[in-house]
Design a protein around this nucleic acid. Structure first.
Lengths: 230, 230
DNA sequence: CCCTCTTCGCGAACGGCGTTCGTGTTACGA
DNA sequence: TCGTAACACGAACGCCGTTCGCGAAGAGGG
């Protein structure tokens, strides 16, 4: 069951078919390795090539440019999401689980979330599978076409943004993260209460709560809202 | 007794007299100009310095590094948001307007939204004013401290993500944008219906709707959700 | 078995980046 | 007028993505 090759990739794809088809896979997996160990900024054509024992120029036979490589890596990552079977009664939980998985998977590969928001639309086969699953869940829940289309967009956007925020500080050591946190806390603690009465009054609430709780809060808002929209 | 300035010295003398002295404010405004005209990628220390008639090294007397410069630009941009006076009866509209303004303002300066998601937390004075206003609105609406704190986070994140998505294709010509769009449409039209039944069935709905409608849909979900949460 | 011809992998180079260093220049108090 | 402190900034370092063209490896003909 194959998906057509997008037109903007066809030249590279044709070139690849002349040689071993496994090499593109190897390049993408190597790039993913690099991403996991050193973060998005470290993923350069030179470093990927170096890990493969070749020069950067060789990669351009398999990939049109760096952006295309990153999109392929992204789809590999999205493939880690496991899709739920249909169960219309639990559509809210199923939706939430998909978004949770999206966040988990994107967060596990630091920086890849940025690629999502730079890309027009995720068109890789795995991304399509996820979209298909989400839309099927929403449709089985009786939502109108318009709501389904918009909801998929919004949920994906929210998941991506959360993942992006969560991996923003990758590359810092634990000590640096802690230092930064205490600096921010001190900064907020020193804000003048007459100019920022609400912020200073709510400081404890602002500092409390884990990333997870904040994410779940937003997710609940969205899904609750969907429950009352057809 | 004064002697006229030799011609071979006049150019330098003229440049200096016309050139404004370097200042942090001037640097930040110049960077914003560059951002508006050529996009985030074009904002390099070298180009900013060039516009000021100097070298990149000179900027480092006013700014620790490029990230700090971008954060200053970001706060300048956020300052364009006009804050509402208190009116507890209309808290939902007020919230929505703030997020709409956030999106509008971030979208007007292409790429600056990326800076938000790379930064730990927006700590500039203007960002603080916006947070203060949002939290005041929510508090006046009777929300608990916890809900206020989480809601501000979620709304800001959503607004930023929308702005980021919206400015992702800056720098492409209108023709390139159109070409890309038709390619994507064709690609989706060619998807096998047996593997992607829902996507292919909902194609018209997926393609319909403006950015604005999609944004408003998500915003309504969030604010509706907030209306039923204390 | 050798020689030509084609193919294509990839070293080297281009232009750009952020940042640093040390020198050149200015302005001002003494 | 001089000394010095503060500022300005050219040049250089080590990265980056991408392109070009050389040369080696392999195919095909003799």
């Amino acid at each position: 069951m194959s998906v057509p090759v997008p037109p903007w990739r066809q030249r590279a794809a044709r070139e690849r078919s002349v040689k071993q088809p496994l090499s593109l896979d190897l390049i993408v997996r190597t790039a993913l390795d690099l991403l996991d160990t050193e973060g998005l900024d470290a993923v350069s054509m030179r470093k990927v090539a170096q890990r493969l024992g070749t020069g950067a120029a060789s990669l351009y036979a398999y990939v049109r440019n760096k952006d295309e490589l990153l999109e392929l890596v992204l789809d590999l990552v999205i493939g880690e999401i496991t899709l739920p079977g249909p169960d219309p009664a639990k559509w809210q939980d199923q939706l939430k689980d998909l978004v949770r998985q999206q966040v988990a998977v994107l967060s596990a590969h630091p920086g890849i979330a940025q690629v999502v928001l730079r890309t027009p639309a995720p068109t890789g086969p795995n991304a399509l599978d996820v979209s298909e699953a989400m839309m099927a869940i929403l449709r089985a829940a009786g939502k109108s076409d318009r709501v389904v289309a918009f909801a998929v967009d919004v949920l994906a956007l929210y998941g991506t943004a959360v993942a992006m925020e969560r991996t923003a500080d990758f590359g810092l050591t634990e000590a640096e993260r802690h230092e930064r946190l205490t600096q921010v806390q001190q900064y907020f603690a020193e804000l003048p209460p007459d100019r920022f009465p609400t912020i200073t009054a709510l400081l404890p609430a602002l500092m409390s709560g884990t990333d997870e709780e904040r994410f779940e809060f937003g997710l609940s808002l969205l899904v609750q809202g969907l429950a009352t929209t057809n």
